[in-house]
Design a protein around this nucleic acid. Sequence first.
DNA 1: TACAAAAACGCAACAATGTTGCATTTAAAT
DNA 2: ATTTAAATGCAACATTGTTGCGTTTTTGTA
Lengths: 137, 137
Amino acid sequence: MKGEEDILQQHGLKNTKLRKAVLSVLIHAEKGLSHQDLSRALDVDFDRVTLFRTLHSFEDAGILHKIIDPNGTAKYAYSAADEADKDHCHAHFICLKCEEVFCLEDSFPLKDVKVPRGFKKNTLDVQVKGICKECNN
Amino acid sequence: MKGEEDILQQHGLKNTKLRKAVLSVLIHAEKGLSHQDLSRALDVDFDRVTLFRTLHSFEDAGILHKIIDPNGTAKYAYSAADEADKDHCHAHFICLKCEEVFCLEDSFPLKDVKVPRGFKKNTLDVQVKGICKECNN
DNA sequence: TACAAAAACGCAACAATGTTGCATTTAAAT
DNA sequence: ATTTAAATGCAACATTGTTGCGTTTTTGTA
Ligand SMILES: [Mn+2]
Ligand SMILES: [Mn+2]
Ligand SMILES: [Zn+2]
Ligand SMILES: [Zn+2]
């Protein structure tokens, strides 16, 4: 388990207060977090545009992956180092009640999906929708 | 192949100019269309809120299904009558270049996805991203 | 055809998410 | 300490989508 500063440095990103804070929240979060979720979770001061840009940087660097929830809002989750494999994409569970997004262990091989001739496959997104454990009680 | 008017009647929806036009466009479209796409495609006069409400009605009725594209914007595609099967969900191809959404023949069994204990599965969304035939040329 | 009720519509106002440009500040290398 | 590229803050904007409310239209029935 590396510290936030090391992760930033490894990806050639400058070490700022907001970035460390965002990274820390996301590493310890068990769910995907939206811009709004993060705004609430962060204690440091920041501009909303900077947070958008931070999330983009992290996504570009491969530190985070983005999940679009059923309302069309982006949620971000930390990508463990070994998740760079593009041929197996882990699925996400989306609760229809609380709208939370969970990363699942289960992953799917891209090659199993059949597409028409001439189409080139790149990545796969699998979303299971249903009711999460919390909301089921 | 039923006419637009019959489809509306069958679902208990009133027969209006916009609705017939929207249905007609979507039935003949080979791709998922956004609110904006439809605005451009429609020749009749309409209010943008009414179009949003029309799409919601159609979705609720099961006439259309919604696909959220990678930007978070909703696209709608016509649901053939037999597509009510919730245990097999057909996948969608999303082109990373032109951003168009195609319904695929290929479908996936919901039961194949493993979720943690306590989670209740409901529906499955599969999106393959890549480059479409057009953009590949 | 006339009438009534429910549904659909049009308009205005609003909210949320996300983007762009530009001047200023800061991190980090020399 | 100096320099430079990167990151930030702020204002302004775009797009998508929603809500409330008064008016019009569809459709079933008398
Ligand atoms: Mn994930
Ligand atoms: Mn489809
Ligand atoms: Zn839930
Ligand atoms: Zn394309």
